[in-house]
Design a protein around this nucleic acid. Structure first.
Lengths: 157, 157
DNA sequence: TTCCTTGCAAACGATTTGCATTGGA
DNA sequence: TCCAATGCAAATCGTTTGCAAGGAA
């Protein structure tokens, strides 16, 4: 599910926490210590992270099954967005209404994924093009994601 | 059936077959009946397909393990490109040098993925924007992929 | 003959779930 | 108290692999 948003400002760490708390309370779901720990770790790590990375970040304080359950819950609440890397392993990142609309730079060399934000004019351009093309096919557009493949700064010859 | 290709060039079904054959022979790998069957099915199905879809298409003529092995081989030879859908299940499609550069319409309702080709001017616009933005981050762009999420014609209210 | 390819079944790894226990409102 | 949340272990599911049989060069 895609939650539309438009922000012109960065959202602070504390704000993210507050928003997550509210979203969960709306769904009468508790924002427990373990869940807070996970959200905080995602902010720290930045970009789409694997369960393994999260597990390491929380230092085994949260057992594997709970971590999976937490991620399923966060995903269900629209707090995170789930993708899969080249190996098919799940990667989670905070949703766009928390982090802002952005795209991904995927390094074909080291596999690292980092976020990139387009300038408003650029984003508008893409939006227009995508909408025109898809609408012509009778497809009702809700959002788009761009993965830019190439070599990151570290992996250039 | 004619497959559209970006630079106003059309590649026929037979041409795809020929190109695949050549690519495999370069790697001294046989283009066996089972493998031909798979490539033909991918052309028929169109868009990124799952192993399950392929298995059905070939009517159990190819056992599961062989199918997996064939896909691994084709992927390795750069004939197919592997992605993963929302459920984490692998999806394969013929590579862009066979099908032309295109993007994807992903239905959030039924999960179907279909190909969409942008008009040359549109593609150029996207290319420019992507390149500008990524280069500014010190990232050397090799390509891009756009997933357009929304509702397909069948799944609209 | 020699090496590639196939087919079956067993193995794997990521993810999910059953069930009894804990803990917060 | 009562129900959500947790933790462990067992189960699931897509996918991979070992090994022996089949086939093409």
């Amino acid at each position: 599910m895609i939650i539309p948003m438009t922000f012109d400002q960065k959202i602070s760490r504390a704000d993210v926490d507050r928003r997550v708390e509210q979203r969960l309370s709306e769904r009468q779901v508790r924002y427990t210590a373990g869940r807070r720990w996970v959200v905080r770790s995602m902010l720290d790590l930045g970009g789409p992270v694997t369960i393994a990375q999260l597990l390491e970040a929380v230092g085994d304080a949260v057992p594997l099954s709970s971590l999976y359950r937490t991620m399923a819950l966060l995903d269900d609440a629209g707090i995170t967005h789930k993708t899969h890397d080249a190996g098919g392993v799940a990667r989670y990142e905070l949703a766009e209404w928390l982090l802002g609309h952005h795209h991904h730079l995927v390094c074909v060399e080291c596999g690292e994924v980092s976020d990139i934000e387009l300038a408003p004019g650029q984003e508008q351009g893409v939006d227009q093009i995508v909408d025109d093309a898809a609408t012509a096919e009778g497809f009702a557009v809700l959002g788009h994601r761009i993965d830019i493949e190439g070599r990151c700064r570290k992996c250039q010859p």
